[in-house]
């Protein structure tokens, strides 16, 4: 299936940091969430990236299924000794993190510059 190989996360190398930006505005669809999850986990498992910033600037919707994928990524990163930071989360979406108290678990910054600082 061609949809399976579609890139849903664009990754840019800034120094020794991998900045991953979501392509989709809505991270709701089950198939997309699976692809996104696989691509993000591959950054840790296959590419052995040690510093990852996940930029949510483009994201307008996020479901609990997407949160579960982010949790898996966080666990993988922690196990591999990689640092993971989130940034660019708009207020509506940030409310989802605060309601679920996942803002306590994830390392969240306002902007990409702030996330990159001191990483």
């Amino acid at each position: 299936m061609s949809a399976g190989s579609t890139r849903r996360v664009e990754v840019e190398e800034i120094g020794d940091v991998s900045v991953a930006r979501f392509v989709d505005k809505k991270i709701l669809d089950e198939t997309n969430i699976q692809i996104i999850g696989n691509q993000l986990v591959a950054l840790v498992d296959e590419d052995a990236r040690k510093k990852i910033v996940l930029d949510f600037s483009n994201v307008e919707y996020l479901s609990s299924a997407a949160l579960s994928k982010l949790l898996i990524l966080e666990k993988k990163a922690k196990a591999a000794g990689a640092k993971l930071r989130f940034c660019g989360i708009r207020p509506d979406i940030y409310q989802i993190f605060t309601l679920t108290k996942l803002n306590k678990l994830f390392d969240i910054y306002d902007s990409e510059d702030q996330a990159l600082e001191g990483l």
């Binding site: 479901s63 609990s64 299924a65 949160l67 579960s68 949790l71 966080e74 666990k75 989802i96 309601l99 679920t100 108290k101 996942l102 306590k104 678990l105």
Partner: peptide, 18 residues
């Protein structure tokens, strides 16, 4: 309760909560 400290890292319960 997905916001319980012990459940934070587990999947499940967040959909209903949201």
């Amino acid at each position: 309760d997905p916001t319980d400290e012990d459940n934070l890292e587990k999947p499940g319960g967040r959909g209903i909560m949201l």
